[in-house]
């Protein structure tokens, strides 16, 4: 279980997180929605320790994420970055197998490559892609490779940062279905940030809406349409008029 309590983070005068409280139960898929610049990415990076909160606590199974063995902590995570964040200088299979080739439990090259090819197949990519470089792939393929890399070491927790941004609707659908299937079959805890409502409905068990540096609303995805919260209603229906200022 991931638990955030009263998390604050400011960058200079820009107070991005203003007391975020959020609980993500083990084995569930939480989707964080909210407009651009509301601190969704900062929140996600705070859990991973890439950004250090100014105050508040973030715990994973009761343990403070800022303390203890970082490698052991990070080994439990997989992350799909917004732009893929694939390493340009490495071939696709080396990207996917990156974690498997590091650390004390480093696998031999052949074994790591075999696992990478299996994961690439899982995300719908053929074996010949394994020896290409990321720059040779389309955006959708890069996203799939990023997804394969995120699940390569079979993590307990997977983070998805805007998984469908920049993709056409069909490819977005493919990625959404893949995420849902993978999270379900691995029994992983998932945290996704997005502003794509199709993604939300496809991926989420629970939804939290971030606005003004706080969690404005949280609940099951089935309650999203029923809520009378004007912020949520404006957001999910994409209205220009409402309590959320359209010019931010």
């Amino acid at each position: 279980m991931i638990e955030l309590r009263n998390v604050h983070k400011a960058f200079g005068s820009n107070h991005v997180l203003r007391g975020v409280d959020l609980v993500i139960p083990k084995g569930t898929s939480m989707v964080i929605i909210g407009g651009s610049g509301t601190g969704k990415s900062v929140l996600l990076k705070s859990v991973l320790g890439l950004v250090r909160p100014d105050s508040g606590t973030i715990t994973l199974d009761g343990q403070d994420v800022t303390r203890g063995d970082r490698d052991a902590f990070l080994a439990r995570f997989g992350m799909l970055f917004q732009g893929g964040a694939l390493f340009d200088s490495l071939r696709v299979w080396e990207n996917v197998a990156f974690r498997l080739r590091q650390g004390a439990r480093k696998l031999p090259k052949d074994q790591a490559r075999a696992i990478a090819i299996e994961k690439l197949r899982r995300v719908g990519l053929k074996e010949h892609v394994a020896d290409q470089y990321p720059a040779e792939l389309s955006g959708g393929m890069q996203k799939r490779v990023g997804l394969a890399r995120a699940i390569a070491a079979e993590p307990e927790i997977i983070f998805f940062d805007e998984p469908t941004t920049g993709l056409d609707p069909i490819m977005s659908g493919v990625i959404n279905d893949l995420i849902r299937e993978i999270v379900t079959e691995m029994g992983a805890t998932a945290m996704t940030i997005t502003h794509d409502m199709t993604s939300v409905r496809a991926i989420a068990d629970n939804v939290a809406m971030l606005h003004g540096g706080k969690v404005r609303w949280t609940g099951a995805v089935s309650g999203l349409d029923a809520t009378d919260d004007p912020y949520v209603q404006q957001f999910i229906h994409g209205r220009a008029e409402g309590p959320i200022e359209s010019v931010r």
Partner: peptide
Amino acid sequence: TMKVTEQIDALTTLST
């Protein structure tokens, strides 16, 4: 460029 495209964050999350 690695920093801007989050490749350095990716390295960290991959325990490197």
